[in-house]
Design a protein around this nucleic acid. Structure first.
Lengths: 239, 239
DNA sequence: GCCGGTTCCCAACAAAGGTTAAGGAGGCGC
DNA sequence: GCGCCTCCTTAACCTTTGTTGGGAACCGGC
């Protein structure tokens, strides 16, 4: 069921009525397989559909004039990374699959009809983009204020929490299929320095990040380093 | 007219119909004077109203567990910096007036009634929060990839462009009432380093930032340093 | 099973930015 | 007009991160 992760996530994060679920289920979706590294929408593009991650991993990224790349967010099953394109018609960044992924494409036309007809769903999706925004704010703090090792720890904890919503972070292990270069791009450091801090966290027996997997070795030390406060994820709709 | 800057801005950035303008004009707003440095809403708070900046300057900021502060955005006349609180009920950051300001408070109840009754306005406001989000993305790039002097230049150019919408950046001079410490907090550098780069840009005759005012001395050099691409501001609704 | 590309790993050195510590300029209350 | 407080300014020194340039390990295709 292609909508399973999306419905699970929206229900956890915002709460859905039965009518909402039915309306979302009725959306026409085109499912496609995407290979690792392939771009989904590019900076400057004018997409006419939104992309639901059914399975896999995508990132949003921006490249500066001088050619440096910054990863802005990491997206997992159940998320719609380019939902903003519904009202921001020209892309200001790239969306790329970093691992082989299953994607579902939903036309802007059908989404707009859905939100117009169903203000409740409009608010749920609006809220979803606001949570996206809250995560960007935390990333500004991450790159602006924390030393590189803490940045990595914070990113790892955040991803784990988000994966947990759809049951993709059981135990102390989960997938994070980014190369060290991409981890550096997400943290705002060079690949060499990314390697240094990954090694450091491994040597200190805090987390082992290798071959696209993360193994948490010491919860306490990781929490200490990350100084993670989950409020910004707004996972509880009642709060 | 307290709504002048807001309507001017929404109309530039999204386009408004006459009916929308009338409906916005009918909103009940409580106007209050705010002194410089006074907090408007705090991290963890659960506001029941949104705050429109009628005149003045506000910033949003987060403080880490270890006490470091990061400014997330700068807000000017015509903006609603905590519009996200309409659907994100608990604040994940602070909103503070950095200069003496005139603020208008609009209850969530009346805003929600407005958006429910008028899907067009709902979309305009949704789009507004998406532009907010696009600016956060650019700030991640700014803090993550650019050297400190470019970061400052970029921030200056962005603010100038946004002020220009409501005619508050005529000529080569505009207000930016931040202390050097606050500039540092926005750029993710220490106050000492903020001072270094401000001096450097002054010595190089690029911009003179002092006593809360910015004077652009050399457009070309500034543009060069900032590498500014205004697409992320999404100021043209037709694009 | 080998080959070519990607990814990972590492060391030496350079540069950007952080830390500490201090003095000076300007505004405001009395 | 004096004193206080905030903000700005600067210098010397230290730490983190970037740069350059390498080599080793892994992976998929043939």
């Amino acid at each position: 069921m292609v909508l399973a992760a999306l419905l699970r996530r929206l229900n956890t994060v915002s709460g859905l009525e039965n009518a909402d679920i039915a309306a979302i289920r009725a959306l026409p979706i085109i499912v496609r397989q995407w290979e690792a590294g392939r771009s989904i929408v590019s900076d400057g593009g004018r997409p006419t559909e939104c992309c639901l991650v059914i399975e896999g991993f995508c990132v949003r990224a921006k490249t500066t004039v001088s050619g440096q790349r910054q990863i802005l967010s990491i997206h997992i099953a159940g998320e719609i990374p380019d939902l903003q394109s519904l009202h921001l018609h020209r892309m200001d960044h790239d969306l790329i699959a970093v691992a082989a992924s299953t994607l579902g494409f939903i036309s802007h036309a059908s989404l707009r009809a859905l939100t117009r007809a169903n203000p409740n769903i409009a608010e749920v999706l609006w809220r979803d983009t606001l949570i996206d925004s809250a995560i960007f704010r935390e990333w500004i703090v991450n790159v602006g204020q924390r030393p590189a090792a803490s940045r990595l720890a914070h990113t790892v904890v955040e991803l784990r929490r988000r994966l947990a919503i759809t049951g993709r972070a059981a135990g102390d292990t989960f997938e994070m299929p980014l190369t060290q270069e991409q981890i550096g791009e997400a943290l705002g450091v060079t690949p060499v320095h990314a390697n240094r801090i990954i090694r450091q966290l491994r040597d200190d027996r805090i987390v082992d990040i290798s071959r696209g997997r993360v193994v948490v070795l010491d919860e306490t030390k990781l929490a200490d380093l990350a100084q993670f406060d989950d409020r910004y994820l707004h996972q509880d709709p009642s709060l």
